[in-house]
Design a protein around this nucleic acid. Structure first.
Length: 589
RNA sequence: CGGGGCGUGGCUCAGCUUGGUAGAGCGUUCGGUUCGGGACCGAAAGGUCGCAAGUUCAAAUCUUGUCGCCCCGACCA
């Protein structure tokens, strides 16, 4: 492709609307332009990257037994009403009416659509397993779209839905997808991790997320270097510390004037935060309940939400004061049952001895408080937010923390949708059973942003070779070198390499700046200095390495570079993989 | 939806407090000089100041409404 005939409207200045690196760079590199909030046009450079990713995804889905379909984006309300999600989805669903006033939505996801399709077509266990997938636009009217295509209202997603006859089948489908996902992100040239995840609103018990590691990622990942454990911090657990074997001391009231927060109390009394019991009050529709965690722990809202299974929020201090007559900052678990407050506690509370907590009296705390002797708990659960330094739940080694962008999420759904939509099959006994489903999503357009988020510097994007819009950029210093540049261009094209030739009548500096910005992995500078020695000057964008290749070897050198930087296969040539079976691996570049 | 902020040439922004001829830099076009990391000189084009109503002799500027966008919170691929 010749630059002068192409369409890459780069921006010299940073658009004011962009916050994070990938958003700024996609705008500056002429990849996207906003149409309205969270809705973007993808320009040629971005479109090429999308196609690269889609190709990898399709190959791996097909290889894992997937069969591609294209489903309606405009979906009728009835199927959503049958699963109850017409109401559950709420404002996040783009809704529309046709001329007959019938309700439709723009598909935010396709469980309903695919299940209602399959239910009419699949009748026998002989037709299973079935793994159908689609890659298309999805629509979610996000409350707050942000970060460019990272969280958009219109976005491209791949979804595969598996239909099996039993749990063993589901497990095989899940495992096949797990492996395919590892393969996909490896082949994209991204550093990523598969982590255990909360299954959220979609339901199901087992779930993994695939995270592209990036400091700017919204998700926090806890992982163990010793074993394979890795989890989203929404889900992560840690091994429990051993119980304190201490003689129980008599309870003691201490005056702590104006010391309401954990740091204040621990400083004032010279004790570690781990010795405090923090008491927080939450409100649901019908009750107020207390949640106890250790002073150095935070409550994990996801875990609490899963346990309560109903809407809840932190009770405002005025509520606590008026309804329970308790002074916020000095509350403790003693005597709460008498106030008809249900008490939940994190598991770590069990192991504490001679703790400190509020005295339920302004400006007073209690020392040497002990479970059972002094207060009771209605139920224990893992309610704390795990953090770096906690012990791995499998092997007790300290957990490490990193951040990531969620680009894939796989779920075991079970029969949630097949039951409500009555998608059944007959087994060998002729018995009618609901299909066992799984669903497996990849945010295709989000991968583009995540890849940039992971690979950029001050000058621009550094594309991993497998998903770069072009593999090679040829940059003639001036018009004088254009003929030689075209020779190299033809040679590379003939070898099947994707090349962008910057034939614009621009100053060298401008071309260098644009080259860095759009981030094509191999830059070949054709200038008088190199040509005098029958060489091109090579700059590798990812590492910044400078090389010289002789004109006669350019093509073979490029091919060698691309092969070396195509994990898992190049040009359809798929290499064997070396991932572990339980799959939780960290890819190193 | 709650809180905060912003809408002025294609882009980044000044001007608004204190109403009176709409500005700069970048980009674009033309001419010239340059030409290996976003050149320089000269000339030019380009703006319903988001939109609507109001106050006023006069509104980018003041008031009200409205639309859009961005940031912080709950959501998620």
């Amino acid at each position: 492709m010749k630059y002068s005939q192409y369409f890459i409207p780069t921006l010299r200045e940073i658009p004011a609307e962009a916050e994070i690196a990938s958003h700024k760079l996609m705008l500056r590199a002429g990849m996207i332009r906003k149409s309205s909030a969270g809705i973007y046009s993808f320009l040629p450079l971005a479109h090429r990257v999308l196609k690269k990713i889609i190709k990898i995804v399709e190959e791996e889905m097909d290889r894992a037994g997937g069969v591609q379909v294209l489903l309606p984006m405009v979906q009728p309300a009835e199927i959503w009403q049958q699963t109850g999600r017409w109401d559950v989805y709420g404002e996040e669903m783009f809704r529309l009416k046709d001329r007959h006033q019938r309700d439709f939505c723009l598909g935010p996801t396709h469980e309903e659509m695919i299940t209602s399709l399959v239910k009419n077509e699949v009748r026998s266990y002989r037709e299973l397993p079935l793994r159908l997938y689609q890659i298309q636009n999805k629509y979610r009217d996000e409350i707050r779209p942000r970060f460019g295509v990272m969280r958009a209202r219109e976005f491209i997603m791949k979804d595969l839905y598996s239909f099996d006859r039993d749990n063993d089948g589901l497990n095989r489908s899940y495992q096949a997808m797990f492996e395919a996902y590892n393969q996909i992100f490896t082949r994209c040239g991204l550093e990523f991790r598969a982590v255990e995840a909360d299954s959220g609103a979609i339901g199901g018990d087992v779930s993994h997320e695939f995270m592209v590691l990036a400091d700017s990622g919204e998700a926090v990942i806890l992982y163990c270097e010793e074993c394979s454990y890795a989890a989203n911090n929404e889900k992560a657990t840690a091994a429990l510390p051993s119980s304190m074997e201490e003689p129980l001391l008599p309870i003691e009231k201490v005056h702590t004037p104006g010391q309401a927060t954990v740091p204040e109390v621990t400083t004032y009394l010279s004790v570690p935060p781990s010795q405090l019991i923090k008491t927080l009050f939450y409100q649901t529709d019908d009750e107020i309940l207390a949640v106890l965690v250790r002073g150095d722990d935070e409550i994990n809202d996801i875990k609490l939400g899963n346990l309560l299974n109903k809407p809840y929020r932190l009770a405002p201090p005025e509520e606590i004061a008026s309804k329970l007559d308790l002074p916020v900052g000095y509350v403790g678990p003693l005597g709460l049952q008498e106030k008809r407050v249900k008490v939940l506690a994190d598991l770590r509370i069990k192991a504490m001895a001679n703790s400190i907590c509020g005295a339920n009296l302004k400006d007073y705390h209690l020392r040497n408080v002990n479970l059972e002797r002094d207060f009771r708990v209605d139920s224990f659960a893992d309610l704390r937010l795990a953090k770096a330094g906690d012990q791995c739940p499998h092997c007790q080694h300290p957990l490490l923390e990193t951040r990531g962008v969620e680009v894939g999420h796989i779920f075991k759904l079970g029969t949630k949708y097949s039951s409500s939509l009555r998608a059944t099959f007959r087994d060998e006994q002729g018995e009618e059973k609901p299909l066992i489903m799984g669903c497996y999503g990849i945010g295709i357009s989000r991968i583009v942003a995540a890849a940039i988020e992971q690979n950029n510097d001050q000058d621009g994007i550094k594309w991993p070779a497998p998903i770069a819009p072009f593999q090679v950029l040829i940059l003639p210093i001036s018009k004088e070198q254009l003929p030689q540049a075209e020779e190299i261009y033809k040679g590379l094209i003939a070898a099947g390499v994707e090349v962008l030739l910057d034939d614009r009548d621009e100053r060298a500096g401008v071309k260098f700046k644009d080259a860095d910005l759009i981030g094509i992995p191999v830059r070949l500078t054709v200038g008088p200095k190199g040509l005098a020695k029958e060489e091109v000057e090579v700059k590798l964008r990812m590492t910044g390495e400078d090389l010289r290749w002789s004109l006669s070897e350019v093509t073979s050198q490029v091919l060698a570079y691309l092969k070396a930087h195509s994990p898992g296969g190049v040009l359809n040539e798929i290499m064997p993989t070396n991932q572990s079976q339980d799959g939780v691996i960290l890819e190193k570049k």
